[in-house]
Computed example of a mutant assay.
Amino acid sequence: MQPTDALLDRFLAGLAPLHPVAVWAHGSLAGGDYQEGRSDLDLIAVLPALTPRTVWRLATLHARLRAEPLSGQLHCTYLTPSADMDRRHLTWAHEELFKRPVTPVTRRELHAFGRVLHGKPPKDLLPPVSDRELADFVVRDQRDFWRPAVDNAPLWTRDVWVDLGLVTFARATVTLREGRLISKREALELLPGLGAPVEVVADIRGRRYGDPAPAVENRAALTRTYLGPAIDELVAAYG
Rank of each mutant, 00 (worst) to 15 (best):
V138K: 01
S130M: 06
E95A: 05
L126G: 02
P229F: 03
L12C: 13
A170D: 05
L190T: 12
R208D: 09
L47H: 11
V200A: 11
L15T: 10
R53D: 04
L12Y: 10
L181I: 13
L164R: 03
R53S: 13
A83I: 12
D131T: 08
G72Y: 03
L61K: 15
S183L: 06
G179F: 01
A135Q: 06
V129R: 02
A112T: 09
L97P: 10
E109L: 04
S82G: 06
G206F: 04
V201N: 07
V235G: 08
A220Y: 13
S71D: 14
G14P: 10
T157W: 12
W56V: 15
I231G: 08
A83V: 10
L58R: 02
A170P: 00
P192W: 09
C76W: 11
R132D: 12
A170H: 04
V138M: 00
F137E: 10
V102F: 02
V116E: 12
Q35A: 14
L47I: 07
V200D: 14
R10I: 03
R87I: 10
V21S: 12
I44M: 11
R64Q: 14
P81E: 07
L234C: 04
L7F: 07
P212G: 07
R53N: 02
D159W: 08
T106C: 04
R66V: 10
G32C: 00
W161I: 04
A221M: 13
T225P: 02
H26P: 00
S28K: 09
G119T: 14
P148E: 02
V138L: 02
T173L: 04
R38I: 12
G210S: 03
T157L: 07
D163R: 09
A135W: 02
A6L: 10
P69S: 09
L191C: 14
T106W: 00
V139W: 00
K99A: 06
L8R: 10
Y34N: 11
V150C: 00
L166C: 08
P148L: 00
V150Q: 00
K120F: 02
L15R: 07
A93L: 06
F98S: 02
W161M: 10
H94I: 08
H89P: 01
V23T: 15
V167I: 13
L222R: 06
V23D: 15
N152C: 06
T157C: 11
W24E: 09
L191M: 09
A196I: 00
S28P: 05
T103E: 01
P101C: 01
V160M: 13
V150Y: 01
R219A: 07
L12T: 13
L117T: 05
R171D: 06
G206L: 05
A49H: 09
Q2H: 06
P48M: 08
H19C: 15
L47A: 13
A6Q: 06
V167K: 15
A63S: 12
W56F: 15
E189Q: 14
A25E: 15
H118A: 13
T91S: 00
S82Q: 08
F169P: 00
E36W: 10
I44D: 09
A220M: 10
V198L: 01
R207F: 04
V46G: 01
W56G: 15
G119K: 06
R158L: 08
L194G: 14
V46F: 01
G27P: 03
T51Q: 04
G31S: 12
P104R: 01
L70E: 12
L12F: 09
